[in-house]
């Protein structure tokens, strides 16, 4: 089986979110870059688990971005995966990014393409669905379990108020959510091995962009909390009723 895991670089959760150049660019000074957590914990680790069960499995990692991404790709390779591909271009349009990945996928006949459920920077949840459309493959989003049985996948996904399980034939695109796998820390052997694993850098295909960022706005901080004395709980009930209209 051949698996492609899509990875995105995102600022560490605790990063200060600020913008520069008249609020048109993300302020990346001092930002710690990480692998988008959902891509790493759920998509990548589940792929590795599948390879551990079936050693004939090949795992390719792919990211779309400039050379700043190399450190996070090496980290991903240290967790697992056979080789990595970086498409050397910086772009914020999700169609453009997904179409670049689809171009690579077209040449490699992957059985399974995995993404995280969304990135923690742009939160669009759109890469997996777009890739699936461009490759005319089934796509299941917010998958929480994946079992491979021959040429079929048994996939469980979150639905409002519960979960749904379906059987679908490979090839398949999945976006992965909590439950799929657990975070792994790379060990020393993995880190050493990652140094010599191939990291191919490809130039981007000619793809159109459909959207562009005009500017960003930082969400204004809450003015300040209205504190109510612990011996005056009735006042909170009144506020919830009269101001918040909660009941």
């Amino acid at each position: 089986m051949k698996i492609l895991v899509c990875l995105s670089k995102s600022p560490d959760t605790t990063s200060k979110i600020a913008f520069k150049d008249n609020n048109t660019l993300f302020e990346d000074a001092g930002v710690q870059w990480i692998i988008n957590p959902y891509d790493e914990w759920y998509a990548l680790v589940r792929a590795i688990e599948l390879k551990e069960k079936d050693v004939s499995t090949t795992i390719h990692l792919i990211t779309v971005g400039n050379a700043d991404c190399d450190a996070i790709i090496r980290k991903a390779l240290a967790i697992g995966g056979d080789e990595a591909i970086r498409i050397n271009v910086q772009n914020n349009d999700s169609y453009y990014i997904a179409a670049q990945i689809a171009e690579v996928a077209k040449q490699n006949n992957y059985d399974l393409i995995l993404t995280g459920k969304e990135s923690i920077d742009y939160n669009t949840s759109s890469i997996g669905g777009t890739i699936a459309e461009l490759l005319d493959m089934p796509f299941i989003s917010l998958a929480t379990k994946l079992v491979i049985e021959g040429s079929n996948a048994i996939v469980t996904r979150d639905i409002e108020g519960g979960e749904e399980t379906a059987e679908v034939s490979l090839p398949l695109v999945l976006s992965c959510a909590k439950g799929m796998a657990e975070q792994r820390i790379p060990n020393m052997r993995g880190i050493m091995a990652a140094r010599t694993k191939p990291l191919k850098v490809l130039e981007p295909a000619a793809i159109e962009t459909f959207t562009s960022v005009v500017n960003y706005e930082v969400k204004p901080a809450k003015t300040s909390v209205k504190l109510i004395a612990a011996d005056n709980v009735a006042e909170l009930a009144r506020l919830l009723h009269e101001e918040v209209k909660a009941f």
């Binding site: 349009d93 999700s94 169609y95 997904a98 459920k117 969304e118 939160n123 669009t124 949840s125 759109s126 890469i127 997996g128 669905g129 777009t130 699936a132 459309e133 461009l134 796509f139 299941i140 989003s141 917010l142 996904r157 979150d158 639905i159 409002e160 976006s175 459909f210 959207t211």
Partner: peptide, 24 residues
Amino acid sequence: SQNQTGKAIAARVAAKLKAGLVAG
């Protein structure tokens, strides 16, 4: 709506229509 269903299909529909998408 960017609910579970919207997250599953909005991007796919946008790609099919060659339409720009704002999700969220």
